[in-house]
Amino acid sequence: MTLRRGIFLSGIGVISAWVLLPIWLIAASAVGGQGQISAWPKPLWPAGGTLDGLASFLAIEGVWKATANSVAVALLTMAMAILLGAPAGYALARFNFRGANLFRVLVLMTRAFPVAILALPLTVSFIRFGVYDTAFGVALMHTTLALPFAVLVSASLFQAIPRELEEAAWVFGCTRWQAAMRVVLPLALPGIVATAIFAFVISWNEVFAASVLTVRNRTLTAYLLAVLSESPMHLQFAGGFLLIVPSVLFIFLVRKHLFAMWGIANR
């Protein structure tokens, strides 16, 4: 009992440290000033707390505009990924059609090509379609990246909802659409929300497509890549820290739904 419990607890400790330690070191370097960054071995507690790095980072021209762009792109991606992904997932779960398995594989294929080799042709066609350098254009690209998750996760969500419930709704006079909306969707909602959040995080973190497809309307990550890569370390850490905060907060707030998506907790 005690041994097993000890192993269990140390396992938890290792996994937590694995995730938390880097975040903590970034946070400490963001507020620790120049001394903290060059110090070795790294003190676990920042020597002198200063918000200068964070403040000067937030004062950089264009950071707020880029943040607004990032939020807009992420929300658009989230909306489009769900609007396209959930129906596709429903179809995969409920209908047996020819090529369903092929479709599953093909949907994953969108992630098989490195965006880097597509940079030039993508940019060219985005310019031709008139969506180059717009939030919508970047969201299109991010939706493509988020769709595999949206489709496959929502397919398994819908699969987990008994078909009988839907059939009962039909018996009581619902049309197929009404049954899907009133019976299936509410049950699947927590999972769909989690999928949406996943799409949000994918878009928020993506940097390559965002920086190739925009010039003036950069998302935060793309903007940071261009400005921060050659800036003093404490500014880089401040930027990195502020960049993880939203996704960590976001995931923390919706963790229950995330577990639902993975089927750990009950709906």
């Binding site: 807009a72 658009l76 489009m80 939030a135 919508f136 009133r182």
Partner: peptide
């Protein structure tokens, strides 16, 4: 609950409308 997808649609339409005119600045 039927409202939900509709709100989603409205929100995304609004976002699209917001995103479009950002390009026009000389």
């Amino acid at each position: 609950m039927t409202k939900h997808p509709r709100t989603l649609l409205i929100v995304s339409a609004a976002l699209l409308a917001l995103a479009a005119p950002v390009r026009a600045q000389q």
